[in-house]
Write a protein that binds this DNA or RNA. Structure first.
Length: 192
DNA sequence: ACCGCGATGCACT
DNA sequence: GTGCATCGCGGTG
């Protein structure tokens, strides 16, 4: 038997993304009952040249400037949908990019959506995760503690590793990528 | 293992 | 017109 799941309230996100991001490792995220445990995230804040919010509020990033505890979904490279959790207070425009999950719920649906069988390949990257969870722009702006989203607190305190963020060209020196140590479900290994 | 590249949409320092 | 908060494939070691 596994431990009962305890729901995460949106107030969890009303703090600096730099506090929230490492605490997201181990949290379970489901969309319409499908998803898994977060094993990798990245933090982006408003003074961050790599962040969508750096240039100020635009049509695309408006959700980042609104209430914490909501989803910010954007299209990446014209192909993928990527999921962020908005943090801090309205106007602070901070968000955590959810980069990888350990699949726990709805494996068969995720396999069908992804077109691959290997469990390790279902959610091991922000674009893969977006496809596995069936995300689109319609999910952007939705509250994380209301359907179709459901978040559950982690049990215990995981071992966390940090490193530089992936796939950016600016502010690459900031170690704002967080991962579950030793997880086989990461998008890429963390360098020692 | 690494490296290069095409796909594909759209925001835009 | 340029550049992505990506992925998967095909090439070379």
């Amino acid at each position: 038997m596994s431990a009962p799941r305890r729901r995460l309230n949106r107030r969890f996100f009303a703090r600096s993304v730099h506090e929230v991001a490492p605490e997201l490792i181990g949290v379970t995220v489901l969309v319409d009952g499908i998803g898994g445990r977060i094993v990798e995230v990245e933090a982006y804040d408003q003074e961050d040249p790599a962040s969508h919010a750096y240039i100020g509020r635009t049509a695309r990033n408006a959700v980042m400037f609104e209430a914490p505890g909501h989803a910010y979904v954007y299209r990446s490279y014209g192909i993928h949908w990527c999921l962020n959790f908005v943090c801090d207070r309205p106007g602070c425009a901070e968000a955590a990019l959810i980069r990888a999950l350990e699949p726990t719920d709805g494996l068969d649906v995720m396999r069908a959506r992804r077109g691959v069988a290997a469990e390790r390949a279902l959610c091991s990257g922000p674009g893969k995760l977006g496809q596995a969870l069936g995300l689109t722009l319609e999910h952007s702006g939705l509250a994380l503690d209301e359907p179709p989203f459901a978040l559950f607190a982690r049990s215990g305190t995981p071992e966390i590793v940090t490193g530089p963020r992936i796939g950016i060209t600016r502010a690459t020196e900031r170690s704002w990528r967080y991962g579950l140590e030793g997880s086989p479900f990461l998008s890429r290994p963390f360098r020692p």
